[in-house]
Design a protein around this nucleic acid. Sequence first.
DNA 1: TCAACAGTTTAGAACTATTATAATGTAGAA
DNA 2: TTCTACATTATAATAGTTCTAAACTGTTGA
Lengths: 138, 138
Amino acid sequence: MLNNSHYIDKLRSSGLRPTKQRIKICEILFNTEKTFHFTINDLVKKISKATNDKISLATVYNTVHAFKKKGYLKEIPINSDQSYFDTNTSHHHHFYDENQNDLIDIDDADVEPVKINTRIPGKKIKSVEVLVKVEDAE
Amino acid sequence: MLNNSHYIDKLRSSGLRPTKQRIKICEILFNTEKTFHFTINDLVKKISKATNDKISLATVYNTVHAFKKKGYLKEIPINSDQSYFDTNTSHHHHFYDENQNDLIDIDDADVEPVKINTRIPGKKIKSVEVLVKVEDAE
DNA sequence: TCAACAGTTTAGAACTATTATAATGTAGAA
DNA sequence: TTCTACATTATAATAGTTCTAAACTGTTGA
C-alpha cells in the first residue's frame, strides 16, 4: 500500500485519474522485480488472485490500452489469437518458441544494432523490432 | 488458363488436390509480377472480382492455411485484428505504417544481417524477422 | 465542505475474425 | 464406372475485443 503513492503520482502526471482499479493494475504489473509478458486473460487471472474486488473486463481492456498509449506497456507483434503485452518497455527483442508457444526477451545488448538502408519518404522510424522464431532442435 | 497446368502440378506435387477453387486462388495469388500482402478479407474481394463462381469463406481460410503450411505463403507477424499474409516467401522484412495501416516490404539486402548474440539451449533459429514501425514525420 | 462535471467503471450486448460441423460434392485410383 | 478419401460448403459456434449507456467517482472551484 505504501508504493501506491508512487503509482498515484505516475497516473496523475500522465493525465490518468488514479482510480482504485488502475492502482491495483499498476501494482500487479509494475510491482515485480522482473518484467513479464501477458495477455488480457492472464491479467484478469492475476487480478482475481490478487484481490477480492473484481475489476470488470472492459476496465482491464481500457486500462491496458491507456497504459500502452502512455508508454507503460508495449504490445508485442506476433500473430496469435490474442494480443501479448510486455511490461518491459525498454528497447528489446523477442524469441518466440513455436513449440512451447512462449515468448522470451532478448536483451537489446544481445542484438547488434539493426541497420535499415532504406526509408519511406515522409515517414519516421518509430521502432525496430526483431522477432526470432525458434523451434526444437532435432 | 494456360498457366493452370503449372499450378495443377504445383498443387499435386505438394499433396494438395488441384480443385478448381485452389487453382483459382493460385491464379489470384501467384499470377502477379509483384508479390503482395493481403488479409483473408482482401482475398475474398479479389476472388469475387475475378470470378462468378463464388468460393466459400471456409474454403478461402482452408486454402490459405494449406498454402501457408506448404510454404507458398508467409504470415506476417503484426498485431492487428486480422492476419496478414504475404505472397513473398523469400526472406525479407517489413515497414508497418501506423498511420496508413499499411505494410511495405523491406528487401533483405536493405537490412544488414541481424546478429543475435544469445541462444536458447535445445532450440534452433527458424527465422529472424524485423518489423520497422513508422509514422508520419511531423 | 460540497456541488457539479468530466472522466471512469460496469454489465452485458454487439461485433468480427476465425474455426468447427456435418452434409454434399469431386478428384483420382482401381 | 465405382469407390473412397479428400474438399467444399453453408451455417453454427467460438473467442477476443469493442461498444453502449447507465451508474459511479475523482477533482475542481465556489
